[in-house]
């Protein structure tokens, strides 16, 4: 099926929206409330386009493409409507990009930039208090654009059903349960709302001041906790050798972007100063730090001695279900090929 978009004949599939068609054809339409995992919400009205024969501007995220449609995404009306919408959003909140945690990854900032908004009026009304009750997540209603992505994430994606809209109109606010502080709510701190928030209305607390989006190196890896094997991106401060932030990888199996409280927030143990950093040998009942050569020579000597005296089956080993396949493979090959026993197991049974 085909339709006309900005004067071009483009083809599309049944079920695609105008936004889908534009994206597939490299045509930029700004969005704020739409997200691949929460779908169209038609709240922000930033994605409006003109459709011939339809009255008024249409939200492209929610209008289904039909054969023969004539769509314009770049008319003066469209541009001015989008600009006015974004200006109103900026005007009704407190968006201070210099101090903002989201600078560099803020969708509102990007959309304003792409629309050519160079300045916008601000109002100096009293700021609403932030919810800093949780150790892991900060909610700042002054940066909330009421796009609803967090509410949809909480209710429809992870189905934890904590976040909700309260009140209405200009007073609409995202709250936990019955507007209680997050730490006292039923929130399990999965952080799906953090990942889907387009601004810094909901952010990771531990990541504050830990580095800008563009300064941090992104490393794709697999979560170290349960057996689901969630795919995640680590945001790494190379100079300080620490992880600053963790994000689920959108659109990638098996987790499709979602994480849980451990995967998203329990990431700083590698940088703990309690890590073991040198080999230890027990001498006179005390562990003392030794060089690798001493530890390896000593261990090899003892293992060879036991093998020679008692045979290979006097050696047993437990591999680790937390470590990599490569280490597990090395562990069983060591038992079998170096020592000569099959007594290798791991905690699959626990």
């Amino acid at each position: 099926m085909k339709l006309t978009m900005d004067g071009r004949q483009v083809s599309f599939n049944e079920g695609q929206t105008l936004l889908d068609v534009a994206t597939a054809n490299g045509i930029y339409i700004p969005t704020l409330c739409w997200h691949p995992r929460t779908g169209p919400a038609s709240r922000c009205r930033v994605c409006v386009v003109e459709v011939e024969g339809m009255r008024g501007l249409q939200t492209s995220c929610s209008v289904a493409a039909r054969a023969g449609m004539v769509v314009r995404t770049d008319t003066a009306d469209v541009k001015s409507a989008r600009r006015m919408t974004v200006q109103n959003i900026l005007f009704s909140g407190h968006h201070n990009c210099i101090a903002c945690e989201a600078t560099g990854r803020c969708e509102l900032q990007d959309v304003a930039y792409r629309l050519g908004i160079r300045e916008y009026p601000t109002i100096d009304e009293p700021k609403e208090p932030m919810d800093t009750s949780s150790d892991l997540i900060v909610m700042n209603p002054n940066k909330c654009i009421v796009c609803g992505r967090c509410v949809a994430a909480c209710n429809d994606v992870v189905v934890n059903q904590v976040l909700t809209f309260a009140h209405r109109g200009y007073k609409t606010k995202v709250v936990c349960d019955t507007a209680v502080p997050m730490a006292e709510s039923t929130c399990v701190q999965c952080g799906e709302c953090v990942q889907l928030c387009p601004t810094a209305a909901i952010t990771e607390r531990k990541s504050m001041g830990m580095g800008r989006e563009w300064e941090l190196q992104k490393v794709n890896t697999t979560c170290p906790y349960c057996g689901v094997g969630c795919q995640m991106t680590l945001y790494v401060d190379k100079a300080k050798n620490r992880i600053a932030r963790v994000k689920g990888r959108e659109g990638i199996a098996p987790n499709e972007g979602s994480l849980c409280v451990k995967g998203r927030f329990a990431y700083d143990f590698p940088s703990s100063d309690k890590r073991l950093t040198k080999p230890l040998i027990k001498k006179n009942g005390e562990h003392v730090e030794v060089s690798w050569d001493e530890a390896l020579d000593y261990t090899a000597g003892r293992l060879r001695g036991i093998k020679d005296k008692h045979g290979p089956d006097a050696y047993v080993a437990i591999a680790c279900a937390r470590s990599t396949n490569e280490n597990a493979y090395a562990m069983q090959k060591f038992a079998r090929a170096v020592i000569g026993t099959n007594s290798i197991d791991h905690c699959a049974r626990t």
């Binding site: 059903q161 904590v162 976040l163 909700t164 809209f165 309260a166 009140h167 209405r168 709250v175 936990c176 349960d177 019955t178 507007a179 039923t186």
Partner: peptide
């Protein structure tokens, strides 16, 4: 009252936030 909201949520087997959201609307 908040107790009433929680009780209604429990009776309808829905999250109390949902009751609160509708009521405040």
């Amino acid at each position: 009252s908040m107790e009433t909201i929680h009780a209604i949520a429990a009776h309808l087997r829905i999250p109390s936030g949902k009751v609160f959201g509708v009521a405040t609307f």
